[in-house]
Design a protein around this nucleic acid. Structure first.
Lengths: 336, 336
DNA sequence: CTGTTAGCGCATTCAT
DNA sequence: ATGAATGCGCTAACAG
């Protein structure tokens, strides 16, 4: 690997001149620029990014911390950020927090130590106070899927309550009154908010909330299966189930069919996230769209604007979910 | 942010001493070490990773380049690598090549310029010659899903031919002789190899290869749907379809059902990859397991061993696929 | 328009 | 066991 000094020597000029052509400074004569260029070519010179970062205090890197990399949700999030950043010659460092506070902190601190120009965090276990401390310390940070009061401008989130409302509203609009709800872990605020939306929709339609029809589960397929069986054991009565996410819904389908129910004729189901699996299930899954790719793009644009000073319009960081109708939700038929 | 100098001053010693305690050098007296520690605490000192990297020529980072981040396949690959690296305090920089030669090169070069200690590459568009050039240039690189003759030790791959063989063999074992094959793009070597395995299985069972039953598609759900319809238009006769991957299989399910076929009774289907969607389809999808997580882990361990000198056993980089039986493949029933 | 020089923050001989 | 000095490769005033 050759250095800037060797290029300068070969080109017969000073390192600062080389540095100038490297960074496209205007004040360089055409002919010296050409000399430098050929010298760089001849030496196959590649600037050392690490040295550049140290000297310029800019890494042109943004860091991302998500729960897991092996997930369609976080995959499309990081994918969206990487794509739009990459288009502006910025790069991306990712790290996984595995929903564990200590791991999340290590991940975030790694990104900071690595001098990322900005970081976007999808943390689940870490406290608001910790994130606030970082913001106050001057870390350029964007927080996904979380609303920290007083720091709204640093947060990008989905209106989960509205999503829960829309899901249940759709079910009601199809004539169902006996509606079960399988929530994700209620300690997770998004799960909780979706459930609140569910309740508001019931109230809105004058349907009594029946605790027997509520059940908490993991945000997974097997969580959905288990929840369905517990619902049966309770002898709960329902013609439709609203699920905390698509994976739960997928598990419900499996369990319901196992139990002998025909789908969707004997049971309507709606999911949440509008993940790719909504198209793979049979019947295809009605779901609430979580515009995760747009949110990632928004995050990227926001950073390009505020940190790198590029001219990009960003409006709000509050996103709205939407109902996507497919085959798993149909008009209620007479109960047997 | 405080620097090593400030720590040294506060502790009343030289920077080299601070550096020693930082790097756990043995030759530091207990008491000076304590002094330095308290100074670091008081200043909330955090070493500057960039400066460290420049001085030590080691970044403790490995780079990964994959086609897309928003994919379950690449998600689990990067996830596996990140996890095992992270457990050894190494970190991960990812970049996407989008199956485009120029983008892939830029991605790889970025990782190299960023002085990653090692990189693992899942490139699709770039030439073997280019990768060889990098290896010869001394880049510590691991190539996934590709076998470069003469450089086998740098490659980690799956025996795709065997996978294709196993898939078709299973179908034959269930009594099918009229078997369609929907391949991924034949210019992709893995698609091609799977198809070769398919042919070998047919030959092995003395079944004539019928070009009418072969069709090429994109590696996507819509690719699978389109392929199925083209098969129909050709009036091809088959009681089972072997698909190049799970997404194609998923598309076939949709199209077949659309066409009025009952699954699996009227059509058996097998996929490839054993991706998460195999559990979401109905019937669940028989598939060939692609041990991508193990392969990622192997890559990480290999790097830990060869680059960082840690003691970890790695055997071979050649992995074997396995049949995973589920509900989509059943015994052939009398054709109508 | 170009060259000189002093950092950026830390690691690492080489003395002591 | 500890300190002083040099270098890692590049940027950014400043001077000319």
């Amino acid at each position: 690997m050759s250095t800037i000094y060797e290029v300068a020597k070969l080109a017969g000029c000073a390192v600062s001149t080389v540095s100038r052509v490297l960074n496209h400074h205007p004040n360089v004569s055409a002919k010296t620029k050409a000399k430098v260029q050929t010298a760089m070519d001849k030496l196959q010179y590649r600037p050392n990014t690490v040295a550049k970062s140290l000297a310029s205090q800019r890494t042109h890197c943004v860091g991302i911390m998500v729960n897991e990399l092996a997930s369609s949700f976080f995959g499309t999030l990081t994918g969206a950020i990487e794509s739009t950043m990459r288009a502006h010659n910025k790069h991306t460092i990712v790290t996984a927090g595995h929903s564990d506070a200590a791991t999340e902190k290590k991940g975030i601190e790694f990104l900071i130590d690595r001098k990322c120009d900005a970081i976007v965090v999808h943390a689940e276990a870490v406290s608001d106070a910790y994130l606030i401390e970082l913001i106050e310390r001057g870390v350029a940070m964007l927080v996904m899927n979380r609303e920290i009061k007083g720091y709204e401008s640093y947060c990008i989130s989905l209106n989960n309550e509205l999503g829960g409302f829309l899901a249940t509203q759709a079910v009601i609009a199809h004539g169902h009154n006996d509606i079960a709800y399988i929530s994700g872990p209620m300690k997770k605020h998004d799960a909780h908010q979706r459930w609140e939306g569910h309740r508001r929709a019931l109230e809105h339609a004058n349907i009594d909330y029946n605790p027997l029809n509520f059940i908490e589960a993991e945000f997974t397929k097997s969580g959905g299966e288990a929840a369905f069986y517990r619902l049966l054991k309770r002898k709960a009565v329902f013609s439709a189930i609203v699920c905390g996410n698509d994976e739960i819904a997928c598990g419900v389908m499996t369990a319901a069919r196992q139990h002998g129910l025909a789908l969707p004729s004997e049971l309507s189901i709606v999911g949440f996230d509008n993940s790719p699996i909504t198209l793979c299930t049979y019947p295809t899954l009605t779901s609430i769209d979580y515009p995760i790719a747009q949110m990632g793009q928004y995050a990227a644009n926001h950073i390009l604007q505020t940190v790198y000073g590029e001219h990009i319009d960003c409006d709000s960081g509050q996103f709205k979910p939407q109902l996507v109708e497919r085959a798993s939700l149909i008009k209620r038929v007479a109960m047997k």
